[in-house]
Amino acid sequence: MQISMKLEVTDSPGQLVKALKPISDLGGNIRSVIHERDPLSTSGTLDVEITLDIQRQKLEQLKEELKKSDVSIVRIDEERYLIRKSVILIGHLIHTDMSDTVEQIDATGSAEVGELSMIMPAINEPTSAKMILKSDSIQGITEAMIKLREIAKEKNLLIVEPLEGEGFNFDSGDNITWTD
């Protein structure tokens, strides 16, 4: 998964390495480091913003290691979802209760609806919408798609899916190859 952290380190030589080393030790992949020194600051510390990919189960350990190195974590934002698939839906989306459709997918627990953009057509014309499913695994997306197909059948909606893996966007640097 991808996370971004804001860290506070003391403003002295070797401190930045202290913050980065535990990440690489734990197999994390650093995406970006923003390291700014505020000339007006008198606190003797500086803020570092780091975006990285790391396995979920190693996050707690990373926090521990950073604490041990006297690096304080100001903030952690977690972007859980690494895999996205966008599909287009056509049909009477409003009349067939779009919020129910979204809830049913979210209730699978394997993926959730991340974005939904809908175009309102003329009265009685079918509505078109783009739905982005997000999950932390390909399996999760596959399960959500099975549910979505069930719903589409029941509500008489047309799902337009991407060709093979085209709709999957991997936000992570993990070596996931979609070999379908």
């Binding site: 966008s86 287009i88 056509i90 049909g91 953009s117 175009i119 057509p121 014309e125 079918p126 509505t127 078109s128 919408a129 783009k130 047309l158 337009v160």
Partner: peptide, 14 residues
């Protein structure tokens, strides 16, 4: 036969 120009428009946006 149920394709809509809106749906194609949504695809084109990306």
């Amino acid at each position: 036969d149920n394709m809509s120009s809106d749906a194609i428009g949504l695809a084109l946006e990306d």
